[in-house]
Design a protein around this nucleic acid. Structure first.
Length: 980
DNA sequence: TAGGGTTTT
């Protein structure tokens, strides 16, 4: 049976091979029956197709027709052939026919890829026509939403995206016996990916033929990539193009003016040329970088008084109607001002002259800032040549390059392929889920930079599509099933959990198509007015939803023609609305397959925008000033002025896109609440903990937390219990602040005892005005550290811990004097520093302070206001015994020098005097003076003694309190207080 | 205060 497989249809043969492989070469009876069935069917298919085959003919006018035999031979003898030829060579339409004549497309399909949908459709149409058929017979095409291939198809023209998507279920691309990858030089992501994939596939599919066609650039690279595959060059059926370098003069800073002048001069040269050659006015194609430049130049040209000249703008955002004007007949000269859209995607007919500014906006992705940029850059030589070629299609042409030849020569040969300029998240996810292995080992023609790959993985990690080890998650697998940008896929999946899938589907489909709102140059105001009812001031996403709802309501009631009219009136592109609906329908089906739940009730703003936010975590921004926002990764952005949200300027926004053009713009934005972010971004936010501190009230260590999302603070200072963050630090603070410093109410008996002991010693220090009695705090800290288990970090822990201690253990927690005293305490301390002053049976409480800067430094006597008059004012001068000596020394030292020198050394005289002094309600100085006179005979006048200039602590501080014990007056002038 | 061009399970 296996020998007969060669005569069998490719798809059936593959099924048989697979079954045999699965049964390890020993199929059972049932399998054999099945296989025989497949074989019959496969052979019948082949016979059928062979019978149908009519040899195709080749139009003599096409250059490729001269090489038909060479090409066929090359295909028959090689697995891969590179065919290089310029536009007009006929390669796109003729190569599939050559393959057919060579017997390809019998056992399997001839797959033929195009970069664009329109091209796929028209190419299929042309090939079918040349075979005398309509599409859907031997030649069909498949693009998104449309498939015209059938059982009879031998050639299937499709977008490269379709072929790529087929890889997902058909790893060996078994249904094809031949693949033609057209326009490979465009080097789109899809093309690079397909070429890498095919290179891997070739050895596993020896019967598969691959033809790579390209413009005559990069062919050597392609050939090398495919093991030195032969290159066949086909000449183009084009006319010579005279390239003239006309570099700009004037101010380099004013590029617009330079280009305007350059274009006008080129127009003069064209007119001269036509006069000299007696030619009628020919059409001109001008390449400019963008819409703005097109508008400004078109204004100038319209006022330039060029005779019989029509100026048409051309760019992708233009409505179909406006674009189609380039295909309408006209009289006189037409000047088409175009972006790059005319370089590859659209062919402007009848162009005789090209004026090339030599620049274009090229999308570049910055890994560093995660910003997609659209800088205006000089185009590559290949691109410039492609532009020039646009005027040699109907007759010899002239291309004016508004730069000089050296400039051209110094330019890069080719435009960087897309894979080097784009975020790779989507590619990586597709590759990983379809089992293509690691992107780093995939045989790319030009492998992307490691940083770009890492960046792609990081985005996937942010979206939860891969885990931190870069393994695809279940979520990632679901996301990969959705034909969407991974960010949008993420939104979709989460929205079903949020109860907002219905709305999110609409919005995501809307974000996947070009903006359906049209704003024609001459009807901007009318368009704005028509769009006004859709606008939402808080969310551009809701604006999209409003457009959709409007359209759907109309659609259900109106005929297609009426609907078209309504769209036109509302300045909505009917085509794009239809595309939107197609995508919506496709996504709805996949959601159903993936069992994502559609909500019945309409979603709240919050649930909808949380889903959106989940896909756009890296695109959050907070308002700084009026129009300026600070986005994640320290990017300064501005809301795109076209957004209605820019009028209200909410504090926090999320943006579907951040793109740098003339500035960094956030486009398609919505107001969000910052609290929504953290729960969605738990895996990417960073926490910073700071300022741990003891809080007596909560009996635990609290701290603060800063939460940031890619450098943007979404929570600046949140109070949190610190024990989870740093238990060791909490224990440390608990010991220091709660146990040692005593800022804590404990029920533990040893705590009360220890505190009492410490209080006593501290009080003694205050009394004796020394700080060398009590050990350093560190000794106490060490005491508790030794005894406290590591997990005791708060009051709660502490209380339950000590309650289960044994009596011995409890005793061990008690401080002793030995633990806390640095030196022995003076036994007389109590009498030297009494706690009361007793006078005539009244006890006045004394308190002590040792704080020289404090008003209360020294001894304070407290007296009720009622007792004030009876207070022995003179007795207070005697302070307490412990301070009397110091006071006497200060008094003597404060005497005028002439007197003082009689009592040197002062301490000796004072000590001697003190022998005979007894505290009384007599002035201290007087008594002291009397003793000194007795010893020396020197008399001291009362007013010689120092008074107010004694240190504060050597004068009794008197505090007067009311009946309730509340202080009402205080000071050291006892008599003054008494008289008040 | 204004944006190049494509494609899809």
């Amino acid at each position: 049976m296996m020998e007969q497989l060669d005569a069998c249809n490719q798809l059936e043969a593959a099924r048989i091979h697979k079954l045999v492989a699965r049964k390890k070469g020993r199929p059972g009876q049932k399998d054999l029956e099945k296989m025989a069935q497949w074989l019959d069917r496969g052979q019948a298919r082949v016979t059928e197709r062979q019978a149908m085959h009519k040899p195709a003919t080749f139009p003599a006018s096409l250059p490729v027709s001269e090489r038909v035999d060479d090409i066929r031979e090359a295909i028959e003898q090689n697995q891969v052939v590179i065919i290089a030829g310029e536009t007009g060579s006929g390669k796109t339409t003729q190569i599939p026919k050559i393959c057919m004549n060579s017997g390809r497309g019998i056992r399997g399909l001839i797959g033929h890829t195009q970069p664009r949908r329109i091209a796929a459709r028209t190419v299929a149409g042309r090939i079918a026509e040349e075979l005398g058929e309509q599409t859907g017979g031997q030649v069909g095409y498949q693009v998104r939403f449309t498939d015209t291939t059938s059982d009879q198809s031998r050639v299937k023209v499709m977008t490269d995206g379709i072929l790529l998507s087929e890889v997902q279920h058909d790893r060996f691309l078994d249904r094809y016996d031949t693949l033609i990858i057209d326009e490979a030089h465009e080097r789109s992501l899809n093309i690079d990916f397909l070429m890498g994939y095919l290179r891997q596939l070739l050895p596993k599919r020896p019967d598969l033929k691959v033809i790579i066609t390209s413009a005559t650039i990069e062919v050597e690279r392609f050939s090398q990539f495919f093991n030195g595959a032969p290159v066949i060059e086909v000449s183009g059926r084009t006319y010579p193009v005279d390239v003239r370098y006309r570099s700009l003069t004037g101010d380099e800073d004013d590029r617009d003016q330079g280009w305007t002048d350059g274009v006008l001069r080129a127009m003069e040269e064209i007119e001269q040329h036509e006069r000299a050659e007696k030619q009628p006015p020919g059409d001109v194609l001008v390449f400019l970088p963008g819409e703005r430049e097109i508008r400004s130049l078109s204004k100038v040209l319209r006022h330039a008084d060029l005779r019989h000249t029509e100026v048409l703008p051309l760019y992708s955002r233009l409505s179909n109607q406006e674009q189609n004007r380039i295909f309408q007949g006209h009289r006189g000269r037409r000047i088409v001002l175009s972006t790059n859209v005319a370089e590859t995607s659209l062919t402007v007919p009848g162009i005789r002259y090209v004026i090339d500014t030599g620049v274009a906006r090229i999308s570049r992705y910055s890994v560093r800032s995660k910003i997609q940029r659209l800088p205006i850059e000089p185009v590559s030589q290949a691109s410039a040549n492609q532009r020039a070629g646009r005027c040699g299609r109907v007759a010899p042409g002239i291309c004016f390059r508004l730069y000089d030849e050296t400039d051209f020569i110094n330019r890069p040969e080719y435009t960087d392929p897309e894979i080097l300029r784009t975020n790779l998240a989507s590619v990586i996810l597709q590759m990983t889920t379809s089992g293509l292995g690691d992107i780093r080992h995939f045989p790319f023609l030009e492998p992307p930079d490691r940083r770009l790959i890492n960046d792609g993985y990081k985005l996937l990690e942010e979206l939860g599509a891969v885990d931190d080890k870069r393994r695809v998650t279940n979520l990632g697998r679901t996301m990969a099933r959705l034909p969407l940008d991974p960010r949008l896929a993420r939104m979709l999946v989460i929205s079903s959990e949020q109860g907002s899938l219905a709305e999110t589907l609409v919005i995501i489909a809307g974000l996947s198509v070009q903006d359906p709102r049209e704003r024609p140059q001459d009807k901007q105001q009318a368009a704005d007015q028509a769009h006004a009812p859709f606008n939402d001031k808080e969310s551009d996403f809701l604006t999209l939803l409003n457009i959709w709802n409007f359209y759907e309501e109309q659609r259900q009631e109106l005929s297609q023609n009426q609907l078209k009219k309504v769209c036109q009136k509302s300045f909505l592109s009917w085509m794009r609305m239809r595309e939107w609906r197609d995508i919506h329908r496709q996504l709805t089906l996949i959601c159903r397959e993936q069992k994502l739940k559609l909500n019945r009730d309409s979603a709240s703003y919050e649930s909808l925008h949380k889903a959106i936010l989940a896909g756009l975590l890296g695109q959050v921004a907070v308002k700084l000033e009026k129009k300026e926002y600070l986005a994640t990764r320290n990017r300064k952005v501005m809301i795109f002025p076209g957004s209605k949200v820019s009028k209200t300027g909410p504090k926090w926004i999320v943006a579907a896109e951040i793109v740098e053009t003339s500035r960094v713009f956030a486009r398609v934005v919505a107001k969000i609440e910052p609290e929504w972010i953290e729960p969605l971004a738990g895996h990417v936010v960073k926490h910073h903990f700071f300022e741990p501190h003891w809080e007596q009230k909560r009996a635990q260590v609290m701290g603060y937390e800063k939460v940031s999302l890619y450098g943007l603070d979404i929570i600046a200072k949140r109070r949190i219990p610190y024990s989870k963050v740093d238990p060791a630090e909490c224990r440390n603070l608990f010991i220091r602040r709660a146990l040692v410093e005593g800022d804590y109410q404990s029920r533990a008996p040893f705590i009360a005892r220890n505190r009492e002991l410490l209080d006593t010693v501290e009080n003694l220090e205050r009394k004796t005005r020394r700080r060398d009695l009590l050990v350093e705090d560190e000794v106490l800290v060490a005491f508790y550290e030794q005894r406290l288990p590591a997990d005791i970090v708060s009051g709660r822990h502490f209380e339950s811990w000590w309650k289960q201690l044994s009596a011995d253990q409890l005793r061990d927690m008690e401080l002793t004097e030995a633990d806390i005293l640095q030196r022995p305490v003076d036994e007389q301390a109590d009498s030297l520093y009494p706690d009361y002053l007793e006078w005539e049976g009244v006890r006045y409480p004394l308190s002590y302070e040792f704080e020289p800067t404090s008003e209360r430094d020294g001894v304070t006597l407290q007296a009720p206001v009622m007792a004030l008059k009876q207070l022995p004012a003179r007795r207070l001068e005697w302070l307490v015994p412990g301070l009397l000596r110091e006071k006497c020394i200060a008094l003597v030292k404060g005497l005028p020098k002439a007197l003082r020198r009689n009592f040197v050394p002062v301490p000796d005289f004072v000590d001697a005097a003190l022998e005979n002094l007894q505290a009384s309600n007599e002035p201290l100085a007087l008594q002291l003076g009397e003793q000194l006179r007795r010893m020396t005979g020197v008399r001291i006048d009362a007013d010689a003694w120092p008074q107010e200039d004694l240190p504060k602590h050597l004068r009794m501080n008197l505090r007067v309190v009311d009946d309730a014990g509340k202080p009402i007056a205080e000071g050291r002038e006892t008599e003054k207080l008494q008289s008040e």
